[in-house]
């Protein structure tokens, strides 16, 4: 089961140079608050979905028992190096993969020395779990996946937790708006890239603070159009998280901090299961339980009906 979920930003500044601005310092403190909560919780596992780790071949699950490296961010290399040693839950990673396969997802575990863990994951684990008291498992973000596939990926994570009997905290590592400043910006000058990005971030945070996770998930496409640089086909982390946590608004939210890091929206937010839903709305999007693959909508000839979708697609 999931004890609690968090949204964490992944930029390296709060780890490598918190002293350079009060914004980075506040984010650093928010990470540390989350770290303290996690360490005090009954959780046995940190389950991560990182938008900083793109994949192409299905879904990759990093599950190397112990991994050591010195990481340098490809963009902010001047801020310094990040040496790390992390411990992963290999057994849970394998179980997660099996549950993905059972839901018709293409998935594999990754267990190679020197595998390049992404900056977001490295920063988060360094700040919230510095002593490796909890083991982690990290999931990639497939660049082509859309809502159905990502939702099913979240459900598979829930299946794996249920089978394992473990208690976990879930982390989605992602910026809200993700547009960086294009030129040199000093930490004192750092601000959200545009007013439009700022307004969308605030709207998302308002929903999250009210515990409206499924509402946020349903807004993801709109958010992607309005506030994201289109590096991948959609904004997916809340689909994964909502799939994992039951697709509802029954949460209590807390915004620990919200600041800009080099123009991006960096928010630290907590979500805890609650007895009452913040909003109880009707949702009309499909709720797939298995991934049925891509549908060919271009090659259907006149008079030929497309292949029916699997039964489970319409559950």
């Amino acid at each position: 089961m999931i004890n609690k979920a968090y949204l964490l930003p992944g930029m390296p500044h709060p780890l490598l140079c918190p002293e350079k601005s009060s914004a980075y310092q506040k984010l650093r403190q928010a990470y540390e608050r989350v770290g303290a909560e996690i360490q005090d919780s009954q959780a046995e596992l940190v389950l991560i979905y990182s938008t900083f780790w793109p994949s192409v071949i299905g879904h990759q699950i990093f599950a190397r028992p112990e991994t050591t490296w010195t990481h340098v961010d490809e963009e902010f290399h001047a801020l310094g190096s990040i040496p790390y040693t992390f411990q992963m839950d290999e057994e849970f990673g394998e179980l997660y993969k099996q549950q993905c396969l059972a839901r018709n997802l293409h998935a594999r575990t990754v267990n190679y020395a020197g595998f390049p863990l992404d900056t977001g994951t490295v920063v988060a684990l360094k700040l919230i779990n510095p002593d490796n008291r909890l083991k982690a498992v990290v999931t990639s973000s497939n660049v082509y996946a859309d809502r159905a596939e990502t939702l099913v990926l979240g459900k598979a994570a829930g299946d794996a937790l249920e089978h394992s009997g473990k208690k976990a905290v879930a982390l989605v590592i992602s910026a809200l708006s993700n547009r960086l400043h294009q030129g040199r910006v000093t930490p004192e000058e750092d601000r959200i890239h545009s007013l439009k990005d700022e307004e969308w971030n605030r709207k998302f945070l308002e929903f999250l603070e009210e515990g409206r996770l499924e509402d946020v998930a349903q807004l993801s496409r709109q958010f992607h159009r309005e506030a994201r640089v289109h590096k991948v086909n959609n904004f997916k982390p809340f689909w994964w998280l909502s799939g994992l946590m039951g697709q509802s608004n029954r949460f209590q939210g807390e915004v620990f901090e919200y600041q800009s890091v080099y123009g991006t929206g960096a928010a630290v937010v907590g979500l805890e299961p609650a007895a009452v839903a913040a909003r109880d709305l009707e949702f009309d999007e499909a709720d797939p339980d298995v991934y049925a693959g891509e549908r060919n909508v271009l090659a259907v000839e006149a008079g030929m009906e497309p292949e029916p979708e699997p039964e489970a697609q319409n559950v």
Binding site: P54, I57, Q60, E74, P116, L180, G183
Partner: peptide, 27 residues
């Protein structure tokens, strides 16, 4: 890179490159 064009500025690099997308093929 999103903040302009960057150039390698160190004379020698030695290390291990693992492809994050195809780690099964390239280490």
């Amino acid at each position: 890179t999103m903040t302009g064009t960057h150039f390698l500025g160190v004379e020698h690099f030695k290390g291990l490159s693992v492809d994050p997308v195809f780690p099964n093929l390239f280490r």
